[in-house]
Design a binder for these strands. Structure first.
Lengths: 143, 143
DNA sequence: GTTGAAATTGATAAGCCGTCTCAAGATGAT
DNA sequence: ATCATCTTGAGACGGCTTATCAATTTCAAC
């Protein structure tokens, strides 16, 4: 629970700094968001329909984008949809994707991350986020 | 020119294997495509409007997707649009992307490639292709 | 605790990108 | 040259996201 409080404080500070207000909806969406690694606006819409049937889809989009600006979430385009990643879940953001059956295996490799930083620095960049996807055939699909 | 011939052969083989036909439009689009590292359908549409004012946007989308299936191009979602990358530019298919100004710096890092293979093998995968994008701010946009 | 200016919400319209549809035209095996 | 088949172009369509706007909520100042 202390973890959620931390994120809530980040949000509160961001709101204060930009003259925005803390609403019931924003609290509700943040709490639900922090329970998962990555979501789409649509999935949150369905998840939260039980708790608040009147919560609008537009509000969810607006709020998730707000989280991105506050540095709590990170948007990522996956296929045709936008995934919102929970930044506090470090690691496991890279994907091995089987082109045969569609299986997705998440992995993390510190050495690769380190080399990425190295490349960025060499080019004068400061990395905010990254995306690494390896496409291939899993053991089963190779037969 | 020998390089273009090679890609044209790859396309020809793919077409033959799938009972598809080599059309004037496909040749035109391939030639223009091979001159660049990455394009969007929209930019090609404008570029080619001079050579063939009647070339439709749908045809460009269809053809670029065909190139992906033939292994000549690779689709990548950037922001709200889809970028089609020229795969024949070996060694420069990884990207550093500035979230400020949109600048794209291409790079290659053998060590990262090696580690990717390692991760894949460890998980029973054989890599066919991959995608690595580092998002951040370039030196200029950081001020 | 009231008040009131300013921000937020929900519902829906609008927008954007990419795909689908289909009649007209091009291709290429025979 | 023929003709079955594939392709094209133009616009309609569809999914995802953002914009619009009247009604509501928040919160700082009384």
């Amino acid at each position: 629970m202390s973890k959620n409080l931390k994120e809530m404080d980040v949000l509160r500070q961001h709101l204060a700094k930009h003259q925005l207000k803390l609403t019931r909806q924003r609290e509700l969406i943040l709490t639900a968001f922090l329970r998962q690694e990555h979501v789409t606006a649509e999935t949150m819409y369905h998840q939260l329909a039980k708790k608040d049937p009147h919560l609008g889809l537009a509000t969810i989009y607006r709020t998730l984008n707000l989280f991105c600006e506050a540095g709590i979430a990170q948007a990522r385009h996956f296929g045709t949809q936008t995934q919102y990643d929970n930044i506090s879940h470090k690691g496991h953001h890279d994907h091995l994707i089987c082109t045969g059956c569609g299986t997705i295996v998440e992995f993390e490799n510190c050495e690769i991350e380190r080399l990425q930083e190295e490349v960025a620095t060499k080019n004068g960049f400061v990395i905010q986020t990254h995306r690494l996807e390896l496409y291939g055939l899993c053991a089963r699909c190779r037969h």
